[in-house]
Amino acid sequence: MTPLLEIAGLTKRFGGLAALDGLDLAVAEGEIVSVIGPNGAGKTTLFNTMTGLYGPDQGDVRFEGQSVVGLKPNQITRLGISRTFQTVHLFPNMTVLENAMVGQHCRGRAGLVSSVLRLPAQRNEEERIRDRARDCLSFFGGRLSGYRHDQPAFTLSYANRRRLEISRALATEPKLLLLDEPTAGMNPKETLELTDQIWRLRKDRGLTILVIEHDMRVVKGVSDRVVALDYGKKIAEGTYEEVAHNERVIEAYLGRKAAAG
C-alpha cells in the first residue's frame, strides 16, 4: 500500500546552509512518528516545507499519492495536512470558538453572495461549522469549553493556548496532523495529559500524527517510530529503543543531554 505521506530527497537551503539535505521519510496511515534532533536539525523546516510555507529546492512531498510541492499552504490544508506551531500562533483577539471556527474554514463553501443573503445552505453550514468547532474544542474536556468559548484567545494560559492550537488544527479535519513541540512550556502533569491525548487523537479520530518533540518521555510514550535528524539528514530511524541507543543519535543529541544532566 502507498504510504499516506512520502517524502523523497527533500532539500531546502537557506543561503549556503542546507536545513534539509536529501531527506527521505514515509509515514503510513494511522502511525504516530516522532521527529527528534538537536536545535537546528531541520525539524521545523521540514514541517514548513511540507505545509507549503517554503518551496523545497529539491525533492518531493507526496500526500495520498499526489505531490503537494508547489501548492499553497491553504490548498495543502484542504488536502488534509494540518499543523501547530512551535511558538503558539493563535488569532489572539478572536475568541476561542472563533479560532476553532477559522479552522473549519476550508471545509465550508459559503461565499460572498450566500453570506449576504443568508441562504438556508449557508445557515446550515454556519451551524455545522459551529458544531464541529465546539466538538474539536471539547476534545480537551472542559478546558476550552463552556464560558471559555467567548474569551479572546490571548487571555488563555500557555497550556490552553497549545490546546487551542491543536483544536484549531483538528477543526480543519486533517488526516495527517503535524505537532511542533506540543508540550513545550507545559508542566509535567500537563505533559503527561497531552501524551495521553495524542494517543486518543489516533484512537478516537483515526489521525496519522507526525510530532516534533524534545521531551524524551513524550517521545517514548507516543511513538510507533522515531526519526532522528541532524543537519537536515536522517541519522537514525526505528523504534524508540533503537533510536535512543543509536550511537550517532547519542552523539548528536542525547549525548549532549546526558552530559548536561
Binding site: T51, L53, K72, P73, N74, Q75, T77, R78, S82, R83, F85, H89, L90, F91, P92, N93, M94, E98, M101, V102, G103, H105, C106, G108, A110, G111, L112, S115, V116, R118, Q122, E125, E126, I129, R168, A169, T172
Partner: peptide, 24 residues
Amino acid sequence: SRVGRAWNAMREDEQVAEAMGVST
C-alpha cells in the same frame, strides 16, 4: 459570516490564516 471570519483571521496573522486553510 465565514467571509468576515476569514478576513479577521487574515488581519490578525496572515501566515497562520493561510496555514489554516484561508486563501489569503
